[in-house]
Structures are given as C-alpha cells and as structure tokens.
C-alpha cells in the first residue's frame, strides 16, 4: 500500500485540526483549541482498485506567534491551504502561505474554504474567489462540522496522488 504525505496549512483558527479530526475520527468539537507544533494522523482511503494511506500533517496555524516552516513540506505529495469563510483575512494569509510554499515545492495544492455551515461573512466576490482558485489544483467548500465535502476532498487528493 502506498503512503502519501499531505500537509494542512493555513492561518490560526480556520479549522485544520477539525478537518483532520472529522476525516480520521468522524467527530467534531465546537470548542476551539489552538494547536502547537505538528500532529500526524493517518487514514487509509479505498480507491477502486487500490488503497492509499494518507499521512495528514496538521501544522500549527501560521500567524505572528508561529512562522512558516518550509521544512514541514519535505516529502509532501500535496498540501491543503485551509481558509475560513467567515474571516476575509484568512484567505489573504492562506494565499501568502501558498506563495511561500510555491517557493519550495510544486506539488499539487488544494484550497479548502472551511466553515461552510456558517453564514459567509467574508467579502470576496465570486469572481475574486474564482480568480484565486485558479492558483490551486481544486477548491473545496468544506465543513468540518457537518462533514460537507471533507471526505470528497481527501478522496480527490488520494486519487490525484495515486493515478
């Protein structure tokens, strides 16, 4: 069985840990608990003819308290930039992180617009979002709470990396 490393990156509080928890354990907690450092979780994804084990590197939110560490991307086959659709700044910061990643790797990048269970409270227009999405392999509108598009996002990545 092949193993693939996938990093989750993004600003603080966008829901990276919750996305992993939803995908690996199927649970969600309303309480926001900030992460420190890195946590690696694994889950096997069944494809039509094969299995892929995703090793999900949940990396501490990048902000003024924690800088971007390119070393975490070593050996990654893909990365997900997670943003929060209730916070405009999270997309700006996500794009900054994406550009920093692009300086060290050209593996596929996925954009996750998370917290789709909440009302949209950022001010990006459809056009702007479409423009930014062009920089990514694919964009998913996810909810770690309801599970919307969470499995499909990770399954898409598994397929992308396998085939």
């Amino acid at each position: 069985m092949i193993q693939k490393k996938v990093c989750l990156l993004g600003a603080t509080g966008v829901g990276k840990t919750s996305l992993v928890k939803q995908f690996v354990e199927g649970i969600f907690s309303e309480k926001y608990l900030t992460s420190i450092g890195v946590k690696v979780d694994k889950r096997i994804v069944d494809l039509a003819s094969e299995q892929v084990q995703l090793m999900l590197w949940d990396i501490e939110g990048i902000d003024r308290y924690c800088g971007f560490q390119p070393k975490y991307l070593r050996g990654a086959s893909a990365y997900i930039i997670v943003t929060d659709q209730t916070r405009s700044q999270s997309l700006i910061e996500g794009l900054e992180i994406h550009h920093q990643c692009r300086e060290v790797t050209d593996v596929p990048a996925i954009l996750a617009i998370n917290k789709s269970d909440l009302d949209v409270a950022w001010h990006w227009s459809e056009n702007e979002l479409n423009g930014y999405s062009q920089e990514f392999e694919k964009c998913f509108t996810t909810s770690a709470k309801t599970g919307q598009q969470v499995n499909s996002m990770f399954e898409f990545i598994a397929e992308l990396l396998y085939y």
Binding site: T12, G13, I36, D63, Y65, T86, R87, S88, Q89, H123
Partner: peptide, 21 residues
C-alpha cells in the same frame, strides 16, 4: 502552559481581526 497563553492570544487576534475587517 503554552497552549493556555496562545489560546488567549489567538482568540484575541481572531476577534480583533474580525472587528478591523
């Protein structure tokens, strides 16, 4: 201990960001 401090600091950061935005 670190998580406790960072939790407060980051909650403030998020709230502040939202207000400024």
């Amino acid at each position: 201990r670190q998580q406790k401090t960072l939790q407060v600091a980051r909650e403030l950061l998020l709230s502040n960001d939202k207000i400024l935005a």
